[in-house]
Simulated assay, not measured.
Amino acid sequence: MKRAESSYLMAADHRDDLAKILFEPANVARAIHEAASLGFRNYRITQDEPFDLSDTEAAKALEEWLDREQFHYLWRPTFLDQDPFRPSIVTEYPELVITW
């Protein structure tokens, strides 16, 4: 295995692990219940790392669960906060917004 291939696989594994944590239906259900009990009508799944996780198996499984439970959801672009002391970088990644 070449170094680039192993680096790609490590990055993919890390993203899959992060997606499993973020998009676990039981955790999302608990967060939705908590948000609804506080009067909110939406829940945003935010992440610390700017990765596009919308195509992962965990995200697709969550979308199926949301459809079964009749929630509405939308993947919308989220932009990285700019650091005023560094050159401008334009990076966006999708963020999941769930509404009821």
Rank of each mutant, 00 (worst) to 15 (best):
E5N: 10
K2A: 12
L62S: 00
P50W: 02
S88Y: 11
D48S: 13
H33Y: 08
D13M: 13
L22T: 02
D83N: 06
L96K: 01
R3H: 11
E24N: 14
F40A: 13
Y73Q: 03
L9C: 08
L22Q: 02
K2Y: 09
A31N: 10
F51Q: 03
T99H: 09
A59N: 02
T78P: 04
E34P: 01
D17K: 14
A31I: 07
D48E: 13
A19T: 01
L18F: 05
E92R: 10
E69V: 09
E69K: 15
S37M: 04
D67F: 07
S54D: 07
L74T: 10
T46I: 13
L9G: 07
K60Y: 08
P94A: 02
E24K: 07
D13R: 15
E49H: 08
T46Y: 10
A26I: 07
L53H: 00
W75N: 02
F85Y: 12
P25G: 03
A12E: 13
D55G: 14
E69S: 14
S37R: 05
A35K: 04
D52C: 06
T99C: 07
L9I: 11
A59T: 03
S54L: 05
S54H: 05
A58Q: 02
R41Y: 11
R86C: 12
F85N: 13
D83Q: 03
D83M: 01
R86Y: 06
N42T: 08
S88F: 11
Y93A: 02
A11T: 13
A19M: 01
W75Q: 04
W65H: 12
A58H: 02
W75H: 04
D83P: 02
F51V: 05
D67L: 11
D52Q: 06
L66Q: 00
T56S: 08
E57K: 11
D83E: 03
L22K: 01
F40Y: 15
E49L: 09
R30L: 08
A31Q: 08
K2V: 07
L66I: 03
L18Y: 03
I89A: 14
A26P: 03
T91C: 08
P25I: 03
L53E: 00
I98M: 04
I45Q: 02
E63C: 05
I21Q: 14
A19D: 00
W75L: 04
D16Y: 05
R15F: 05
A61D: 09
R44M: 13
A29P: 01
R44W: 10
T46D: 12
T78W: 06
F40N: 13
R3G: 06
Y93E: 04
E34A: 11
L53D: 00
E57M: 11
N27F: 09
D16I: 09
I98Q: 00
N27S: 15
A29F: 04
D67C: 07
